[in-house]
Design a protein around this nucleic acid. Structure first.
Lengths: 345, 345
DNA sequence: GCTAACATTTGGATCGCTCCAAAAACAAAC
DNA sequence: GTTTGTTTTTGGAGCGATCCAAATGTTAGC
């Protein structure tokens, strides 16, 4: 009574009906008479009643919680992705549990388990680097899962990802068209599936243009600002210097631009840089960054929608959605004349 | 059996014990014999058993879910804050529900309600601009709440916030010490409590230095990159021009720097800019941004810890924690000589 | 062998809700 | 006044865990 939370029974007593009737009202059933419904609703707000979803799911109602496990929230790209997911969830009246696995496999395991314990109806997963199918197998058995951005080979789960290969190809082709021939590929390490795809696109553009692939132009680095800076140092010591770079992502590209600028290289004129992801910041660095736009937010929305659809239909058959990318041309990649136009805008 | 989820009873049957014993094992009780515990644990992993927290909380076990309602996840500062909260939660074996209220009051209401329905044990809230005590009163009755960054006047809930006033005072004093006299205050609108505090600090520094406060130097703007850009235009048309600006936050400051730079102003030499928050990007813009460091992550950690402590103790008596700030001097605010040093670093 | 003391284990009852079959209330038709 | 039909309402069982009082096993002491 006075102790403990207000339950459906308290509401029923107050409204002078049975708990079943209250339950019906909660479920929005059309069976209850309007007058009764009104009395019940009033009783609920009088008592400050709060629905106990846990009790409902226990009985069988399906949960409306989506687990959302993101590998790195300090990367703005993934934040955008998360915002998209979160938006779509609320649109579909699901509520997202968020966890940041912080590129830590152990953490990822814990967090997924915890989400299942809390009754998540499905999982949106941007897997940590180095996740193997075995790591996930038991953990996600029987749960609908949508992988976002990254894909763990061998896992029976949907994937929503950008067309990395095609995006990288277009970007590289653009650089070539601007007259660049010595183009580097900067950032990431070989364990990353996304990088493999982008690298493949880069190589195919070179091939199309009849430019020989030079392994010395592929520079690995951590995918953060510092990684871009470190890569710049390496670029500057090349025997046969490069005149442009396609970066694994925008953060690396921005790090690179900054380091090159400080070293006196006029990025956009002497050196072309293209990033990947088109994060908000790409518009705000100087020179503004040309980037392959992935539209993280809509990627998130689509992933969440796919998952919600699968949950609703009960059909967890894996699907793959590849989102198109587009090259957003700004001033970091221009030929000399273009760079000046860019700066004037 | 084959249908439905594996329950404690299934595990019990498999291990040849009663469900009570299994429950004991789950609770880590020392009452069970080691041999039995082992058999039970084995049965659990054989069956792929997943603990059903909902059922437990129903019976009385207290929930381990923390609600986390953040006003704007597209602002990197709040993302950092969220990461801090998230980190601390996992440290304390809580799991955070995240929601982005996107500066929308209605959304905030829905989301808080939803969190209560899901049994959140407490709430971390960075309130939406314009939230009133009345909006929150009923919604959070009986729930421990910690407000982060912003404070809704009249709400009986803890607050964890930076020492905005003191931080702004220090920053302004630094600009004055560099020889600047015409210092603008840029960004935010008057509805924001945080801004009022920072503005007060700014005014007190002016007063200490005997500089008259000039309302023309206080420029309102949205708190995003574009807002900073817009403010730049306004700054440049002042009759009595300004020589420096303290910005409401780093994002505004970066927008401002960019716009000024494009207009040909040498930021760091001709014009001093200081931001607030010290987001990661502050180190990567050129010139690097001097900023009042708030350490969002540790703010988040402390807020989460406070909340978890309150939940554990059952004592929800409001507390206020003011976190110290420190001025991180980089190159956007230097006197001419200083700017050069900064660039050389 | 019997009992006391201790170490383990075990049936319910219970949490707040949903769902089902069945009861009750009301209205229309004979 | 029954009968039949339709609209509303209602007990009670059950979801998967916890927890408590009580049962059972084990060991030691006499």
């Amino acid at each position: 009574m006075s102790e403990g939370r207000t339950t459906i029974v308290d509401v029923a007593r107050r409204a002078g009906v049975s708990k079943s009737t209250v339950s019906l009202v909660l479920g929005g059933s059309s069976l209850v008479a309007d007058a009764t419904r009104e009395r019940v609703t009033e009783a609920m707000s009088d008592l400050g009643y709060i629905y106990h979803r846990g009790a409902a799911t226990l009985r069988g109602a399906k949960s409306s919680v989506l687990g959302m496990v993101i590998n790195d929230l300090s990367n703005p790209f993934y934040v955008e992705l998360a915002i998209g997911i979160e938006q779509a969830c609320h649109g579909g009246s699901f509520i997202p549990f968020l966890a940041n696995s912080a590129e830590d496999l152990l953490r990822q395991q814990e967090v997924i388990r915890s989400m299942r314990e809390h009754g998540a109806a499905g999982l949106l997963l941007a897997p940590v680097i180095g996740t193997s199918a075995a790591d996930l197998k038991a953990l996600i058995a029987g749960l609908p899962v949508v992988q976002v951005m990254r894909r763990v080979p061998g896992v029976k789960a949907s994937v929503v990802a950008p067309q990395n290969r095609e995006g990288a190809r277009k970007a590289t082709a653009h650089l070539i068209q601007q007259g660049r021939r010595r183009i580097a590929f900067v950032g990431g390490t070989s364990a990353m599936s996304v990088r493999e795809e982008r690298l493949a696109g880069y190589r195919s553009a070179l091939e199309e243009a009849g430019i020989a692939f030079d392994p010395a132009l592929v520079i690995e680095s951590p995918i953060n600002y510092w990684g871009g800076g470190a890569a710049a140092a390496q670029l500057l010591t090349l025997v046969k210097p490069a005149s442009a770079a396609l970066c694994f992502n925008d953060v690396v590209a921005i790090g690179l631009i900054r380091a090159l600028t400080q070293a006196g290289v006029a990025v956009g004129r002497d050196f072309g840089v293209i990033g990947f992801d088109d994060i908000e910041e790409a518009k705000h660095v100087l020179p503004t960054l040309t980037s392959v736009s992935v539209n993280a937010r809509s990627l998130g929305v689509r992933a969440a929608q796919l998952l919600m659809r699968q949950i609703a239909s009960g059909d967890f058959e894996p699907e793959t959605i590849m989102c198109t990318t587009s090259l957003i041309i700004r001033s970091s990649c221009g030929s000399p004349s273009f760079a000046e136009q860019g700066a004037a805008t």
